[in-house]
Computed example of a mutant assay.
Amino acid sequence: MTQGALYIDFEYCSGCHSCEIACRTHLGLSKTENGIKVLEDRPYQHPDGSWHWDFIAYPTELCDLCEDRIAKGKLPSCVQCCQAKVLEYGTIEECGRKLLDKPRKAAVFVP
């Protein structure tokens, strides 16, 4: 079986936390545990005057990319529930190619 990966596009994350809730529910985690966590990079102003307020979703050590869901042909729960379509599941190669097109504000996670 090909190793799966998670492509994360930080540019469009709205900070809704749907991925956290979906993951926590799927894994049966408590409210203090997360398989994926959304961090907030508070508003800041660049020297050019533009403002930035970013949200950064990152998988934790509890993430197994929902291997039981993948085995059934489903998407990981975080990907399924991401309202902004920031999270995408694919092979390492597919996610790596997307990362080449967007070297900033994006990442690839492999458990």
Score class of each variant (00 low, 15 high):
2 T>A: 14
2 T>C: 05
2 T>M: 11
3 Q>N: 09
3 Q>F: 03
4 G>P: 04
5 A>F: 01
5 A>H: 00
6 L>W: 07
6 L>E: 03
7 Y>F: 15
10 F>T: 04
11 E>T: 11
11 E>W: 06
12 Y>S: 09
14 S>C: 07
17 H>R: 14
18 S>L: 00
18 S>T: 02
20 E>I: 00
20 E>L: 01
20 E>Q: 07
20 E>W: 02
20 E>F: 02
21 I>N: 02
21 I>V: 15
23 C>Q: 01
23 C>T: 05
24 R>A: 09
25 T>M: 10
25 T>W: 12
26 H>G: 04
28 G>Y: 08
28 G>W: 13
29 L>N: 04
31 K>W: 14
32 T>P: 00
34 N>M: 14
34 N>L: 10
35 G>T: 09
37 K>Y: 14
37 K>P: 03
37 K>A: 06
39 L>Y: 15
45 Q>W: 10
45 Q>F: 04
46 H>R: 14
47 P>R: 14
48 D>Q: 06
49 G>M: 02
51 W>Y: 07
51 W>P: 00
56 I>P: 01
62 L>K: 15
63 C>N: 07
63 C>A: 13
66 C>W: 02
66 C>I: 03
67 E>I: 07
67 E>N: 11
68 D>I: 12
69 R>Q: 12
70 I>D: 07
71 A>R: 14
73 G>P: 03
73 G>C: 03
74 K>Y: 12
74 K>W: 11
74 K>T: 00
75 L>C: 05
77 S>P: 03
78 C>V: 05
78 C>W: 05
81 C>D: 14
81 C>S: 15
85 K>Q: 15
88 E>D: 08
89 Y>S: 05
95 C>G: 02
96 G>V: 05
96 G>C: 04
97 R>M: 08
97 R>C: 00
99 L>D: 05
100 L>S: 11
100 L>A: 11
102 K>W: 05
105 K>T: 00
105 K>F: 10
105 K>M: 09
105 K>A: 11
107 A>P: 03
107 A>D: 12
109 F>S: 11
109 F>Y: 15
110 V>D: 03
111 P>R: 12
